[in-house]
């Protein structure tokens, strides 16, 4: 049973969430931008890719470019009017626009392209499955067995995650990353030192958003596209991962995503056991309970270990002053 849960360490969903959380970390951990609508960027990436392939018949590489460009446009739309304002406004605008996107995707008005509430059945990941060099059939990796497709998608996803994390590591340590940290600490100080703060914030918003959209593309490869997946809950799950692993660290989001999904799987199985033993009424109710526990865990984390697992305690202790 525990091996089954530990499988979550390497699933494509874990990888996709880790990537989106890395993007969110560029916003929140590095620059101090309160983006409460990362799910919106993920949705833009997922739908931008799937619709490009299925409705417009674009090739996969071209569809990826289109999806990422849409994320750039979306970030500019959000950022240009709001980044001049106080930080809270970005939070309001991002959460609202992510919901607008989800409802628009869910609505029957655009169903010709998006499939409306039914989403899009997966007819867009042939490029990935077709490039699979692994032998077909069931493959075993340690204690786990995968289908060739699942394993290939997981491998591709994790390569992308590690490449992006490596790139972010270079950026964080560059003078550019230092300016972003400076903006996180005090915008006025950075203005007085000749830094074009709004430009940097816009760059950070675009970069983190594009990473979120890339995560959206990964997220839908093994499954279909469902508008419900991109609810606000997705963003807050990412915040949980971020704070769990350590905001403002490079590998914190990855560790956070891994722990998050393993814990979700373990509790899922505990709920099943509880139902079998007659302690819980039904599985649906039990599953809801898990998300209540996520909320409780987030609160406990923020109170008792705000720096996360990989974070630096001294760095945060100053905030208490």
């Amino acid at each position: 049973m525990i091996w089954e849960s530990l499988r979550e360490l390497i699933t494509p969903t874990t990888a996709a969430y880790a990537l989106a959380a890395i993007g969110l970390n560029v916003h929140f951990g590095l620059t101090g931008l309160l983006n409460f609508g990362q799910a919106g960027f993920v949705a833009v990436g997922a739908y931008g890719f799937a619709v490009s392939v299925m409705t417009f018949g674009l090739s996969a590489p071209l569809a990826i470019v289109v999806a990422l460009l849409l994320a750039v446009v979306y970030a500019l739309l959000l950022g240009v009017p709001t980044l001049r304002l106080r930080a809270d406004y970005l939070a309001i605008v991002t959460i609202a626009s992510a919901e607008i996107i989800r409802f628009a995707l869910n609505s029957s008005a655009f169903a010709t392209w998006t499939g409306g509430a039914n989403g899009l059945y997966n007819e867009y990941s042939d490029w990935l499955k077709g490039s699979n060099p692994l032998p077909s059939g069931l493959l075993s990796l340690g204690p786990w067995t995968f289908t060739a497709n699942d394993l290939w998608i997981a491998v591709v996803d994790w390569v992308v995650v590690l490449l992006v994390a490596g790139g972010i590591r270079l950026l964080v340590r560059s003078p550019w990353g230092r300016v972003l940290k400076g903006i996180r600490e005090d915008e006025h100080a950075m203005l007085s030192l000749g830094k074009n703060v709004n430009l940097y914030k816009l760059q950070a918003l675009v970069l983190g958003g594009v990473i979120g959209a890339a995560a959206g593309i990964l997220y839908v490869q093994p499954t279909s596209v469902q508008p419900f997946d991109f609810a606000t809950r997705m963003t807050f799950n990412m915040y949980t991962m971020l704070i769990l692993g350590g905001a403002a660290t490079v590998f914190g989001p990855i560790l956070g995503s891994m722990i998050f999904w393993v814990v979700m799987s373990v509790t899922d199985q505990l709920v099943s056991l509880g139902v079998d033993a007659g302690l819980l009424h039904d599985v649906t109710q039990g599953s809801q309970l898990r998300f209540v526990l996520v909320g409780v865990a987030l609160v406990l984390l923020v109170v008792f270990r705000p720096q996360g697992i990989l974070g630096n305690r001294t760095e945060l202790s100053f905030d208490a002053k």
Binding site: L170, L171, S174, P175, W176, G177, R178, V179, K181, G182, R184, E185, D186, H188, A189, M190, S192, L193, G194, K195, Q203, L207, E315, L316, F318
Partner: peptide, 27 residues
């Protein structure tokens, strides 16, 4: 307005002007 969660040296380096590395494309 010191930048609290940066080191003293990093504060100083942010004072330097015209760093090419501070531009995203030449980071």
């Amino acid at each position: 307005k010191v930048l609290g969660r940066l080191t003293v040296l990093e504060n100083m380096l942010l004072g330097a002007k015209n760093r090419p590395g501070e531009r995203l494309l030449t980071f």
